[in-house]
Design a protein around this nucleic acid. Structure first.
Lengths: 145, 145
DNA sequence: TAATTAAAAGATATTCTTGTCCTTTTCTGG
DNA sequence: CCAGAAAAGGACAAGAATATCTTTTAATTA
């Protein structure tokens, strides 16, 4: 198991890619993005359509169209994106899948995992969608393979 | 997304349940376990067969048979179980699914998630399969719903 | 040894995720 | 207004995860 679903992995990589390109003032087409993050183009298209509907990214049809993220949206926390795609199970769900797990009716791992869930949430909440634009520009970070 | 697969959730809950019963000196049948942890009986049977083949639990056929875990195995780390079911992606995999992600070719989240992966591994490695026997006996912890 | 019990094994069904294909809509530039 | 570009949308396909059913094997005990 991975932390995120494959869909979410593609979504995060794509949004980082779009944020980076958008910070340079240009829109990006689906082909460009798919190549830039090594993902199946048509599947990624579905994911981005969904993110667009949910308002996490913007899109424009027609010539010179493509996907982009405005400055305000680039300041949004990564947790918004993860939650939109994978839900909030990572932040709030019981590690053992128990619906009724809580402080007063804890599963064996409840307390230990609370710390981990909190840390994951904090990390994703602190990180913004545009956080890595500089490093991506300089080629210091990878979004491929 | 949850941290563990459904299969792994069932596996952990079942193993905690078996460890607890085994510490009282009795074997447990699949029906008993499935009822004790609220899981689909026949699916759980498959999971336990697999764990048995992998040596994480023991089983005995015939009357008075069932599943059990000996004292030595009750001291094994939970990480062994998780790894047997879900693999080691949680401990070592890249959060964004990149095969080549590493210190020298990091994805944007590489460093942040290293801390989280380490913490998860540490937690699962410190916790033993028999860790919660006392609390389960006293009814202080839940494995159901 | 026969009957019973319980796990093992194999086959199949269902559901969800991931991935592809084809058509439609919308926008832009000439 | 027309042709082309690009995303949106709907339908479908493949694969993996989850779940069930049936038969077989092994052990116990009467």
């Amino acid at each position: 198991m991975a932390i995120f679903s494959k869909t979410c992995e593609y979504a995060i990589r794509a949004v980082f890619y779009i944020a980076h390109k958008s910070s340079l003032g240009s829109k990006v087409g689906i082909k460009d993005i798919a190549a830039g993050i090594d993902s199946p183009e048509l599947y990624l298209a579905k994911i981005l359509q969904d993110l667009s509907r949910k308002g996490l990214i913007k899109s424009a049809k027609g010539p010179n169209g493509g996907f982009y993220i405005d400055e305000a949206a680039r300041a949004r926390p990564l947790s918004d994106l993860v939650e939109a795609v994978d839900g909030n199970g990572l932040f709030y769900g019981c590690a053992l899948g128990l619906k009724q797990c809580s402080e007063i009716n804890p599963c064996p791992l409840h307390n230990q995992f609370k710390a981990i869930r909190d840390q994951i949430y904090l990390l994703l909440h602190q990180t913004t969608l545009g956080e890595f634009n500089q490093e991506l520009l300089k080629g210091l970070l990878s979004l491929k393979k």
